[in-house]
Amino acid sequence: MSPRGVATPDVRERLFAAAERVVQRDGPGALTSRAVTTEAGCAKGLLHTHFAGLDEFVAELCLDRFARTAAKARALSGLTGQGTVAGNVDAVALALFESGGPAVSGLAMTRPAAALRVREALEGGAPGFTAIQEAVTDYLEAERRLGRVPGALDAGTAALTVVGTAHHLLMTSWPGAPDPRPAMTRLVAQLVAGP
């Protein structure tokens, strides 16, 4: 545990990772500020020093994970013509499921104030599913121009299908449920393979 008065390095990420472990292991009902700080091995009041409360913390956790996945999706443009198209798109889709994605998404939905804060941030331009969809669309269009996906592929519809399916799987998964990633991988492979 960090001694009182000593700065905790990378405190946001440390708390976020601890929250993900708590939710994955014990479910959303177990998430309290004390559970997070205990799991993180830091002072009990540290979460409230950096966040206005648990709802703000949960919202910021969700927005941080969306931003990470959106950055990964934007990086697809640099992979055009490299690797496999299915593998590249699948890596972005699966990033949504990393670090307890289903549990964290479900957690935000159980906390109305956190869900409202996430929605307002997304409406204000924070990266989320729309940014991911746009990046996947651009990538698939570039790959279509190279002939690496069928010419008849509607890139926008394929990207919407990937993001919509990921959203569905995130919202209908819970700790202990079957792993949603294999279904996501099969969907991506089918979409980019064409008829």
Rank of each mutant, 00 (worst) to 15 (best):
L46C: 00
A30L: 14
G29T: 13
T32S: 15
E60A: 07
C62Q: 12
D64H: 15
R25V: 12
Q24C: 11
A43C: 00
C62I: 08
A43Y: 00
A40E: 10
E39Q: 14
G27F: 08
A59I: 02
G29P: 01
K44L: 06
D26N: 14
E56S: 03
L31G: 01
G29Q: 14
A59D: 04
G41E: 11
A52Q: 13
A35W: 15
S33N: 09
H50F: 04
T32I: 15
T49I: 06
L61R: 10
R34G: 08
G45W: 07
A52H: 11
L63E: 08
V36I: 15
G45Q: 09
L63C: 12
T49R: 06
T49L: 04
C62P: 00
L54V: 09
C42S: 04
D55A: 15
L31Y: 09
P28H: 14
V36Y: 04
D26L: 13
A52D: 15
L47Y: 02
C62S: 05
R34A: 15
Q24M: 15
A40V: 08
L61K: 03
R25N: 11
T32G: 12
G45A: 12
G41R: 11
F51T: 03
D26F: 10
L54H: 00
D55F: 09
K44I: 10
G27I: 12
L54K: 05
K44Y: 03
G27C: 07
H48T: 14
G27R: 10
G41P: 00
L31D: 03
G45S: 14
S33I: 07
V58K: 05
A59R: 06
A52M: 01
S33F: 08
S33E: 14
T49K: 04
R25F: 10
G53N: 02
Q24L: 13
P28M: 09
A35M: 15
T37W: 04
K44G: 00
L61E: 03
E39Y: 07
G29S: 07
E39S: 12
L54P: 01
T49S: 02
C62T: 11
A30Y: 08
A35P: 00
D64I: 11
R65D: 10
L61P: 03
A59F: 03
A43Q: 15
T49N: 01
E60Y: 00
A40F: 06
L54I: 08
L61S: 05
T32M: 14
L63V: 06
A59E: 01
D64G: 11
D64M: 08
R34V: 15
D55L: 10
A30M: 15
G29W: 07
H50Q: 12
L46K: 14
V36G: 01
